[in-house]
Amino acid sequence: MLPADMVGGASATRAANLKASNEALTTFQKRVDAVLRRLESSAGNPTRVGAQTIRAGSLNSGTQDAFPEAHALYLQYNHVHEKLTGLSKTLHLQIEAIGIAVQGAHRGFQNLEEEQRRRFWEIQTQIKQLQQSSSNEGHMGVPKTGAGY
Rank of each mutant, 00 (worst) to 15 (best):
M1K: 15
M1L: 12
M1Q: 15
L2S: 13
P3S: 15
A4D: 15
A4Y: 15
A4G: 14
A4L: 14
M6F: 13
V7Y: 14
G8C: 14
G8M: 13
G8H: 14
A10Q: 13
A10Y: 15
S11Y: 09
S11E: 12
A12F: 04
A12L: 15
T13M: 08
R14L: 13
A15V: 11
A16T: 05
A16N: 14
N17A: 07
N17D: 13
N17W: 05
L18S: 09
L18K: 07
L18R: 11
K19F: 05
K19S: 07
E23I: 08
A24V: 08
T27D: 15
T27W: 12
F28T: 12
F28P: 05
F28S: 10
F28V: 05
Q29R: 10
Q29Y: 10
R31K: 13
R31D: 15
V32N: 11
D33Y: 06
A34I: 07
R37W: 04
R38Q: 10
L39P: 03
E40K: 04
S41K: 03
S42E: 05
N45D: 10
P46K: 04
P46Q: 03
V49F: 03
G50Q: 06
G50R: 07
Q52H: 03
Q52M: 10
T53K: 05
I54K: 03
R55I: 01
R55M: 01
S58C: 01
S58R: 02
S58L: 01
L59K: 02
L59Q: 00
N60K: 00
S61D: 02
T63V: 00
T63N: 03
Q64Y: 01
A66D: 02
F67A: 00
P68H: 01
P68A: 01
E69D: 02
A70P: 01
H71N: 03
Y74Q: 00
Y74I: 00
L75T: 02
L75R: 01
Y77T: 01
N78V: 02
N78D: 09
H79Y: 10
H81L: 05
K83S: 12
T85F: 07
G86L: 08
G86W: 12
G86D: 14
L87A: 15
L87K: 13
L87D: 15
L87V: 13
S88M: 12
T90M: 14
L91W: 14
L91N: 11
L93K: 11
I95R: 08
I95Y: 09
E96S: 14
I98H: 09
G99R: 05
I100F: 08
I100S: 06
Q103P: 04
R107E: 05
G108L: 11
G108E: 06
F109L: 09
Q110A: 11
N111S: 10
E113R: 04
E114W: 04
Q116A: 07
R118G: 07
F120Q: 07
F120H: 08
W121Y: 14
W121S: 10
I123N: 10
T125N: 15
T125K: 13
Q126M: 05
I127V: 14
I127R: 09
I127F: 09
K128I: 13
K128T: 12
L130M: 05
Q132M: 07
S133Y: 05
S134R: 12
S135R: 08
N136P: 02
E137V: 04
G138W: 03
G138L: 04
G138S: 08
G141V: 02
G141D: 06
V142I: 09
K144N: 09
T145I: 10
